[in-house]
Design a protein around this nucleic acid. Structure first.
Lengths: 107, 107
DNA sequence: ATAAAGAGCAACTATTAGGTTGCATTTAGA
DNA sequence: TCTAAATGCAACCTAATAGTTGCTCTTTAT
């Protein structure tokens, strides 16, 4: 339960960067794309973007598939859903705590 | 919209650490607590915990209130809700993208 | 009045993260 | 076949992070 929440830390860490969040947004709006394509709009070098994608892949936020000479990245939406669920779990804990407090006060 | 998502980066970064996630969980289950109390269970020093609480406060994940000689920390649940909403926004983008693809294929 | 508890502040260290450049490798295409 | 595109890999730099210790200050409680 608590460990389950703790395990989400690398996932949140992967989301905790402007560049990476932008990539997530880009992939969610535009669908799968190659590294070079993703680097095109950015003011960072292609290698910097590749590093970020590496971090995201390690956190299993995206998956990469080699297609010929390019490697195309796609969002792992299940993983995003996991992040949502972790936050909801925390919210539930909070609500339960409020309920306990309420019960205590009314007693 | 995209900037709105980007602004969530520091928030996710604050959540992206095991120790801090544990603190969030602790605060959500047990309610507000002083720094010393929060540091008690940990194997880290009180100062380390205080630093983590500092970054959480800067990310507005928690608020601190001085009560006599101790400072009690409480979760900012609105901020947690913001994090949830950001993830949901991304999911919505994704769904919209899927819908566009579907429309394109069926046309 | 004094000792101990709780916090805050500062300095210091070690590791990690984000970014760069340069070069090698594989694949597409003219 | 030969060139240009897309990656991958490695070394390197700098700034930020996570952690420590030590000291001071304020507040509580005996």
């Amino acid at each position: 339960m608590t460990t389950e929440v703790k395990n989400a830390a690398p996932l949140f860490a992967a989301l905790g960067d402007e560049t990476r969040l932008a990539l997530v947004s880009r992939l969610s709006r535009g669908g799968p794309a190659s590294i070079a394509t993703l680097a095109e709009g950015s003011d960072l070098t292609r290698q910097a973007i590749a590093k970020h994608l590496g971090v995201m892949e390690k956190a299993r936020l995206i998956r990469r598939e080699r297609r010929g000479r390019e490697s195309v990245c796609r969002l792992d939406t299940q993983r995003l859903a996991q992040a949502r669920k972790s936050l909801e779990a925390i919210s539930r804990q909070w609500d339960a705590s409020l309920a306990r407090l309420k019960a205590f006060v009314e007693e």
